[in-house]
Write a protein that binds this DNA or RNA. Structure first.
Lengths: 146, 146
DNA sequence: TTTGAATATGAAAATGATTGTCATTTCCAT
DNA sequence: ATGGAAATGACAATCATTTTCATATTCAAA
């Protein structure tokens, strides 16, 4: 059992929510999957092993995972909301290739500085940020003969 | 007639699209509205003055406005896509208050620097970026007794 | 171990933002 | 004025997500 699972169970207990078998299956599968996963993909992965779990339950559990800060929502251009692991992960931002859609994660401390500059002069208290840089990845550039 | 309208008409003509009365009404209303507008809000504004214009047409025209770079899509937390004026506006980013939802625009050149740093080391060619800083605005902080 | 209040489930229905369809209209170059 | 092609609008369709509700499950207390 991963520590993140324990965090989830603790979250449930503290709020008087049940620790159901379905929720355990969903959180396990979510933590097993990599990258950015939409709810439907998660549902299909869960259903493959546990056909009795309903789609609605997966959607509901994803919502809980998000509230418990285990999952963070990312949504670059697609219509579907996508989620990535949040608990135990340092904050990072994304490079998004507009050609093939792949994403590259990066971390840069300078942004926090800018954040302080910008928000300080506006009496705005920052909580978190999101930086997305759109462009062309190496692979797409090579395919275009660059 | 605003210059942005002319840009739109030129865009239509260059691509062999018609310059219809409906499209003229929609672009005028779009340019008249301020801030971040969702397609439905635009439709309702247009319909108020010109009840014969259909909702589908508004959606389609918004799509064209976006392609013509008159409208830029912004979408912070809501489910609906929202649009803001793009043509004739310098690039800017957003502070978003998680308390009341208001947004504050800001421009900061340092981000381009970070962009170059990050993408340079990854062989990624940047096209554009989006920085969203979430936090609490002055008003919400005052209401919370800060 | 049993009980029962409250939460959770899942299948089906509903929602709603957006897009597709198609008969008809309109645009605009000739 | 003509006609080919784009556009319209009402309605239908789509699809990711949420709601409904009868039933199941959890878990703390007895």
């Amino acid at each position: 059992m991963e520590f993140a699972e324990k965090v989830f169970f603790k979250y449930l207990k503290e709020r008087g929510f049940y620790n159901t078998a379905q929720r355990r299956l969903v959180v396990q599968e979510f933590l097993r999957l990599e990258g950015h996963v939409c709810a439907d993909e998660l549902y299909r992965a869960v259903k493959k092993k546990h056909p009795r779990v309903g789609q609605t339950t997966v959607f509901r559990t994803v919502k809980l995972l998000k509230e418990a800060k285990l999952a963070a929502e990312v949504n670059f251009t697609g219509k579907r909301r996508r989620f990535e692991h949040e608990w135990g992960h340092r904050h990072h931002d994304h490079l998004i290739c507009v050609g093939c859609g792949r994403t590259i994660e990066f971390a840069n401390k300078q942004i926090e500085k800018i954040q302080q500059q910008v928000t300080g002069s506006m009496n705005f208290q920052p909580l978190h940020h999101r930086l997305e840089i759109f462009g062309h990845c190496l692979k797409c550039r090579k395919e275009k003969g660059e």
